[in-house]
Design a protein around this nucleic acid. Structure first.
Lengths: 257, 257
DNA sequence: TAGTGGTCTAGACCACGGC
DNA sequence: CCGTGGTCTAGACCACTAA
């Protein structure tokens, strides 16, 4: 992944190429930390594109936290590129591989049942709709690190239920079946291990776990999965960039679902 | 704050007005959850602006996680507006007030000392530079919820050190002094309470805490603060939106600073 | 004052979704 | 097929920074 259009087979848009180029140069330290980027006009000439296209590229770099930008002066470098794509954020398997670890997954249970009110709300399902609930233990190089409880609407769940039990990446399997994920809403907090968590993760009931709850939607805005991942401490951290220009991180009281 | 240009006195840009309008309408349920927005052309006509301006507004709503967007069909609603501005994310005081709680802050220690290597790296300081370290206990309605350890470069630290000891919001005080924050990089994980944490928060050493580490920069890209906040469990959660189009959230191994 | 990014316009062509 | 958003152009004016 160097321009955000991985695997689609389409020729990437020009602004993505420009952004990928500059991102790489920033990563190589070409401008230094805190250094100034070339002016918009200069980049437009260098790449033979209009100023608007350069500005689209800059907007990308900005939301990725690489540069800061204000009227009157050139843009400056404020961060380094994260080699992590959106796919690596959503797929434990892809993330683990990108860090050089060997990911594993063991399905614990698969069941279908009526959605509870929270699930209906998250997945936009009508009263009485059936869902698939899948529980899996995720490992890094054989060591248990996370337990994943995912709820799928039945259309997606049927695909998951047919997968071989040793399928490492459900996310990749869904992609191959044409189920793409375009957006996700995450909530990160702390919870306590229950009996099942403790048994599978090898800790004691009540031990603290880092919890990520996530609702993912496809490009049409249809909810695809509602997942709760519980990590052993010392295994992962989450990083976010936020800026006054856009901002997608928020703090909130720790009660509701 | 309804258009992201709070307190600047400048007339907000047109695209911010359009985005704020649509965001409000989405919040009021005008289009329903999963509903379709008006077409770009229709909005351009309605507001008397060009298509480019409408697209700028849509890009804002998209990074805020309110809408999904793809070629061929109208944009659809996928989320609700978070009433939280960037300022409320950075300022515990503002955040607390926006939730209806009464925030408090008690400064525990203020000291100056040479920056250690991690601090020099985060704040872009040369070897031997002095920093100010401030520790504060933050409360909600008198109840301790968080301990905050913030390191400032000396230029900023001098301002902080002169504040009255009962100043509730250091962030607001900095803004009044002309020190603005434009970008921040956050890392969220779990840590254990040390002796000082336990004494101040009223828990036991070793108890789990939700930790947010943050490096903030001003509009020029200059680091302004490097802070580590430790929250008691059950007090806060963090929410993030991520999308394939931009993406600023990442998972990472939980070792380094 | 000269250089720079922020905002906005008016138009073009294309790729995709759904009828 | 038509309606839609994605990409790109070529220009304009303004607000701000720094020399």
């Amino acid at each position: 992944m160097t321009d955000g259009s991985a695997g689609t087979g389409k020729p990437p848009a020009m602004y993505r190429k420009v952004a990928a180029d500059l991102g790489r140069e920033i990563g190589e330290g070409r401008y230094g930390s805190g250094g100034r980027l070339p002016a918009e006009g200069e980049l437009a000439e260098r790449y033979g594109v209009s100023r608007g296209t350069v500005r689209q590229a800059m907007a990308l770099l900005r939301t990725e936290g690489l540069i800061a930008s204000r009227r009157g002066t050139r843009r400056v470098v404020i961060g380094s590129p994260r080699p992590q794509s959106f796919g690596e954020l959503l797929s434990f398997t892809r993330w683990a591989r990108s860090t050089g670890e060997e990911p594993g997954g063991r399905t614990v249970t698969v069941e279908t049942r009526p959605a509870d009110p929270t699930e209906r709300d998250q997945l936009h399902l009508p009263a009485g709709a059936e869902i698939y609930e899948v529980r899996r233990l995720r490992t890094l190089s054989g060591r248990p690190v996370m337990i994943e409880r995912t709820v799928y609407p039945s259309t997606v769940g049927e695909l998951i239920a047919e997968l071989p039990p040793d399928t490492v990446s459900h996310t990749v399997a869904l992609e191959d079946a044409g189920v793409l994920i375009a957006d996700a809403q995450h909530t990160i907090d702390l919870c306590r291990a229950d009996e099942e968590d403790a048994r599978l993760l090898g800790c004691r009931p009540g031990d603290p776990l880092l919890r990520e709850r996530r609702c993912s939607t496809d490009p049409a805005g249809t909810p695809v999965e509602w997942s709760e991942d519980r990590y052993l401490p010392e295994t992962v951290a989450f990083t976010v960039h936020s800026s006054a220009a856009s901002g997608s991180l928020a703090r909130r009281p720790a009660d509701d679902a």
